[in-house]
Design a protein around this nucleic acid. Structure first.
Lengths: 124, 124
DNA sequence: TGAATACATGAACAAATGCTCATATATTCA
DNA sequence: TGAATATATGAGCATTTGTTCATGTATTCA
């Protein structure tokens, strides 16, 4: 009488077994939180554009603001976020600051994401 | 006199060449936007947890709300977002609705992100 | 030293986000 | 049919987020 109709009752008599199994295999809370924080950084078009650009070539702040057609202030604020997330590194030369991607994974993650969205298009 | 001191002037006389090169290699605006929309969906701890759970096993709404210790309403709202993003698929059986991951890429993207955050830990 | 310049940053504000609460819908079962 | 149940959804609300505007800091150059 334990494995009876696992498929019908719910919410009061949840699928205890399913919940237990999944609970046992779930990643720890902390890494999940960090992963979603990482994705949150990626989850803004301006920052994604900046990441793409810096993945191509090192650029200074005003290069970025010219390329992306945004104010220098907006770019600086976003760079701050990217830097805090350790996604970007800076190098100061004179009064200009050059930024680059600080990580190898980022490119891979974006590449996967791009193939995902482009494949979805076709799959309609 | 074209390639003179590419490293010193900025903002008024931007690094024209850099900007041009990068502009030429940037992905189109549309896919970048879609990618960041995808990441925005990932960029919430609740949704990330749901995605992890559904990556392990098919679950109904109240399983999820029990597992993640959140109200049924909150879970339903988030499932709606996941479904709209085509990340999740549903199957109705009686009055319970079962959800699963709808995509192969998702697991890969998350796997990369997990290795990223865990490696960062070590790199301190 | 002082003006000019490249960048950083705080405050403010509008927009987006995620949850809760109440309620609607759909399905089962007596 | 009517009660119970699993899920969906709209409105409201507090929080977060991204930009702008103004201003601060650091560096170069005359």
């Amino acid at each position: 009488m334990e494995h009876d109709n696992e498929m019908f009752e719910c919410c009061n008599v949840i699928h205890e077994d399913v919940v237990q199994r999944v609970m046992g295999q779930m990643p720890a809370e902390d890494p999940i939180y960090e992963v979603s924080e990482l994705f949150k950084v990626f989850g803004d078009a301006t920052r994604s554009r900046m990441i793409c650009a810096l993945g191509i070539e090192e650029m200074c702040v005003c290069d970025l603001s010219a390329l992306l057609n945004m104010t220098q202030s907006a770019i600086s604020h976003q760079l701050r976020i990217l830097k805090a997330a350790r996604l970007v590194r800076s190098r100061k030369q004179g009064r200009t600051v050059y930024y680059t991607l600080d990580d190898d994974h980022i490119g891979q993650i974006f590449a996967l994401a791009f193939t995902h969205v482009t494949e979805e298009e076709g799959a309609r």
